Measured scan of single mutants.
Amino acid sequence: KFNKERVIAIGEIMRLPNLNSLQVVAFINSLRDDPSQSANLLAEAKKLNDAQAP
């Protein structure tokens, strides 16, 4: 279950337009470290993406 959620979360994070490459890598590394947190990490990535919108 967590592996599928992690793959989906990674794909979504990679498509967030307002994150820089270091932020994307940090979120992906966090997902690798704890796949059970996929939903929480994706939500945090989306919040950061929205906050950094031009």
Rank of each mutant, 00 (worst) to 15 (best):
Ile13Trp: 01
Leu42Ala: 03
Arg15Asn: 08
Ile13Ala: 01
Met14Trp: 04
Lys4Leu: 04
Leu31Thr: 02
Leu16Asp: 00
Gln37Met: 11
Ala53Asp: 10
Pro35Thr: 06
Leu41Ile: 11
Pro35Asp: 06
Ala9Gly: 02
Met14Tyr: 06
Glu44Ala: 13
Gly11Ser: 11
Leu42Arg: 04
Pro17Asp: 04
Ala39Trp: 14
Met14His: 04
Asn29Gln: 10
Ala45Gly: 01
Arg15Trp: 03
Pro35Asn: 05
Leu22Ala: 10
Gln23Cys: 03
Arg32His: 12
Asn49Asp: 04
Pro35Ala: 13
Ile8Glu: 09
Pro17His: 08
Pro35Ser: 06
Asn18Trp: 13
Arg6Asn: 14
Leu42Gln: 02
Glu44Met: 14
Ala39Pro: 04
Ile10Trp: 04
Asp50Pro: 01
Pro54Gln: 10
Val25Asn: 08
Phe27Asp: 00
Met14Val: 06
Asn3Thr: 07
Pro54Val: 10
Glu5Trp: 10
Lys47Cys: 10
Ala26Met: 12
Gln37Glu: 07
Asp34Trp: 08
Asn49Gly: 01
Pro17Asn: 06
Ser36Pro: 03
Glu12His: 10
Val24Met: 06
Leu31Ile: 12
Pro17Trp: 07
Leu48Asn: 02
Asn18Tyr: 13
Ile28Cys: 06
Ala26Cys: 13
Leu41Gln: 04
Ser30Trp: 12
Phe2Asp: 12
Ile13Asp: 00
Ser30Arg: 15
Leu31Phe: 04
Gln52His: 03
Ser36Val: 06
Val25Leu: 13
Gly11Gln: 11
Ala43Met: 12
Phe27Gly: 00
Lys4Ile: 06
Phe27Val: 02
Asp34His: 14
Gln23Trp: 03
Val25Glu: 07
Ala39Val: 07
Arg32Pro: 04
Phe27Tyr: 06
Asp34Phe: 08
Ser30Ile: 12
Pro54Leu: 09
Ser38Trp: 15
Val25Lys: 11
Asn20His: 12
Ala39Tyr: 14
Ala43Arg: 09
Asn18Val: 00
Gln23Pro: 00
Asp33Pro: 02
Ser38Cys: 08
Met14Thr: 04
Met14Gly: 04
Leu16Asn: 01
Ala43Leu: 10
Asn29Met: 14
Ala26Leu: 09
Phe27Pro: 00
Leu48Phe: 04
Asp34Arg: 06
Asn40Phe: 14
Val7Met: 13
Arg6Asp: 15
Val25Phe: 14
Glu44Asp: 04
Ala43Glu: 06
Glu44Gln: 14
Gln23Ile: 04
Val24Pro: 00
Leu42Gly: 01
Asp50Leu: 12
Asn49Ser: 07
Ala51Gly: 05
Val24Ala: 04
Ala9Glu: 03
Glu5Lys: 04
Asp50Phe: 11
Asn18Leu: 02
Val24Thr: 05
Leu19Trp: 00
Ala53Gly: 10
Phe27Lys: 00
Leu19Arg: 00
Gln37Tyr: 05
Ala26Arg: 11
Glu12Phe: 15
Phe27Leu: 04
Asn18Cys: 05
Leu16Arg: 00
Pro17Ala: 09
Pro35Met: 11
Leu16Ile: 01
Pro35Gly: 08
Ala51Trp: 10
Asp50Met: 12
Lys46Met: 07
Glu5Arg: 04
Asp33Gly: 07
Ala53Glu: 07
Ser21Ala: 11
Leu31Cys: 03
Phe2Pro: 13
Ile13Leu: 07
Asp50Tyr: 08
Glu5Val: 06
Ala39Lys: 14
Asn20Ala: 07
Ala45Tyr: 05
Asp34Gln: 06
Leu41Ser: 03
Asn20Met: 07
Pro17Thr: 07
Asn29His: 08
Asp50Lys: 10
Pro35Val: 05
Ile10Met: 12
Leu42Ile: 06
Asn20Arg: 12
Ser21Leu: 12
Asp34Cys: 13
Val7Thr: 09
Ala39Cys: 14
Ile10His: 03
Pro35Trp: 14
Asn49Leu: 01
Leu41Tyr: 10
Glu44Asn: 07
Arg32Tyr: 14
Asp34Thr: 06
Val7Glu: 15
Gly11Ala: 12
Ala51Met: 11
Arg32Ser: 13
Arg32Gln: 13
Gln52Ile: 04
Lys4Ser: 14
Met14Glu: 03
Leu41Arg: 06
Glu12Pro: 01
Ala51Lys: 11
Lys4Val: 05
Ala9Arg: 03
Pro35Glu: 05
Ala26Tyr: 12
Val24Ser: 03
Pro17Phe: 10
Asn40Ile: 11
Ser21Gln: 08
Ser36Gly: 06
Lys46Ser: 04
Val25Asp: 05
Lys4Glu: 15
Asn40Pro: 06
Leu19Asn: 00
Ile28Arg: 02
Asn20Cys: 10
Phe2Lys: 12
Ser36Phe: 09
Leu42Tyr: 04
Asn29Leu: 15
Ala39Glu: 07
Arg32Ile: 13
Leu31Asn: 00
Phe27Met: 04
Asp33Phe: 13
Leu42Lys: 03
Met14Ile: 09
Ser21Gly: 08
Ser38Gln: 05
Arg15Ile: 05
Pro35Leu: 06
Asn49Ala: 03
Ala53Gln: 10
Ala26His: 09
Asn3Phe: 09
Glu5Phe: 10
Gly11Asp: 05
Leu42Ser: 03
Asp33Asn: 11
Ser38His: 15
Leu31Gly: 01
Met14Arg: 07
Leu22Asp: 10
Val24Tyr: 03
Met14Pro: 01
Pro54Tyr: 11
Ala39Met: 14
Asn3Trp: 15
Ser21Glu: 07
Ile28Gly: 01
Ser21Thr: 14
Phe2Glu: 15
Ile13Pro: 00
Ala26Lys: 08
Leu19Asp: 00
Ser30Ala: 10
Asn29Arg: 12
Ile8Cys: 12
Met14Gln: 05
Ile28Leu: 14
Leu31Tyr: 03
Gln23Ala: 02
Arg15Gln: 06
Asn18Pro: 00
Ser36Ile: 06
Val7Leu: 13
Phe2Trp: 06
Ile10Asn: 02
Ala9Val: 09
Ala43Tyr: 14
Asp50Thr: 08
Arg6Gly: 15
Ile10Pro: 01
Lys4Trp: 15
Gly11Pro: 02
Asp33Cys: 10
Ser38Ile: 15
Asn20Trp: 10
Val7Lys: 14
Asn49Gln: 01
Ala53Ser: 09
Asp50Asn: 10
Ile28Met: 12
Glu44Cys: 12
Ala39Asn: 10
Asn20Phe: 12
Ala9Gln: 03
Asp50Arg: 12
Leu48Val: 07
Phe2Gln: 13
Ser30Cys: 09
Ile8Met: 11
Asn29Ile: 15
Asn3Gly: 07
Ser36Gln: 07
Pro35Tyr: 07
Met14Leu: 09
Ala51Asp: 07
Gln23Arg: 01
Lys46Asp: 01
Gln52Glu: 03
Phe27Trp: 02
Gln37Val: 06
Ser36Trp: 07
Ile13Met: 04
Lys4Pro: 15
Ala43His: 07
Lys46Ala: 04
Asn40Cys: 10
Phe27Cys: 02
Val25Trp: 14
Asn3Arg: 03
Asn40Ala: 09
Ser38Lys: 04
Gln37Ala: 10
Arg15Gly: 05
Ala43Gln: 08
Ile8Gln: 08
Ala43Val: 07
Leu22Met: 11
Ser30Met: 13
Asp34Leu: 05
Asn49Trp: 01
Ser30Gly: 05
Lys46Val: 06
Asn29Ala: 13
Asp33His: 12
Lys47Asp: 06
Glu5Tyr: 09
Asn20Ile: 06
Ala39Ser: 09
Lys47Tyr: 06
Leu31Lys: 00
Ala51Pro: 01
Glu12Trp: 12
Gly11Phe: 14
Ala26Ile: 10
Asp34Val: 04
Asn3Met: 05
Lys1Ser: 15
Ile10Tyr: 04
Ala45Ser: 02
Ala9Lys: 03
Ser21Lys: 10
Ala26Val: 11
Leu19His: 00
Ile13Glu: 00
Lys47Arg: 11
Leu16Phe: 04
Asp33Gln: 08
Ala45Met: 02
Ala9Phe: 15
Ala53Trp: 05
Lys46Trp: 08
Ile13Ser: 00
Leu19Val: 01
Leu16His: 02
Gln37Thr: 06
